[in-house]
Design a binder for these strands. Sequence first.
DNA 1: AGCAAAGCTGACGTTAGGGTAAACGGAACG
DNA 2: CGTTCCGTTTACCCTAACGTCAGCTTTGCT
Lengths: 133, 133
Amino acid sequence: MTTDTLNIREMCDAFEVTPRTLRFYEAKELLFPIREGQKRLFTKRDRARLKLILRGKRFGFSLEEIRQLLDLYHMEDGQVAQLSKTYEMSRVHLADMEAQKAELDEAISELKQQMAWGKAKLAELAEGNSVAA
Amino acid sequence: MTTDTLNIREMCDAFEVTPRTLRFYEAKELLFPIREGQKRLFTKRDRARLKLILRGKRFGFSLEEIRQLLDLYHMEDGQVAQLSKTYEMSRVHLADMEAQKAELDEAISELKQQMAWGKAKLAELAEGNSVAA
DNA sequence: AGCAAAGCTGACGTTAGGGTAAACGGAACG
DNA sequence: CGTTCCGTTTACCCTAACGTCAGCTTTGCT
């Protein structure tokens, strides 16, 4: 193994996030990089956590919710409690996401209609011009 | 007609928004209610604009974009320029929304998988307990 | 020694409002 | 006429998840 820890730049490149994001996550106690002098060094644990964080974000969890889940996860006992809490929260988010999807679908088809109308109107105006010309 | 203008409460009820929202939109120069004393009176024009604003929001336009479109709309000349600009912006947002939809669909199915895994794991742990008992 | 790159902290900006305070105006009531 | 209450007004701070900027070390290279 080369170093087993990543500096902030390497961490950013590995996960496609900005340094600001990593510092922010540290401030929010989602990551706990060790310090060498004042520089941050991200461990395997941080990498595992960040992976879960980014997945949680895709699922629409807030950072605060993610922090709670990670904390639960960290205390390895009580797996049942942790798993069922995660499951419960997931159910809520799934419902949320499906509602969002429905809204989005509706907005998309409405926008398409509007665009069709706009296109027709533009054609009409163009024709008017050419007739007048 | 009763008054032809609505006070803030009536306006809120008509569009399901809060007073705060209407004041905010006025501050952002999206609405221009007239003042009777210091109270706001929303005209037919404000109602038309608010309708467009809310529609724009559903389509994922930012308030700033909406303001620009409304301004274009306001100068009634150059309909072609206005329409085609709106059309162009709409295309961008449509692409955006379809990308969002794709991401959302993927996240939903991924979350469903995770939940299935979690459910199985929970069942397994429960069984372990009952076996051990 | 000098300088640039990389990293750090700290603070303010952003979006679309929410929440709350303090003050003001007008209508109803006694 | 005074009071009370309701609706509204201005005004300020708060939120999430960072972006951005200024200014300071630290480190490496020449």
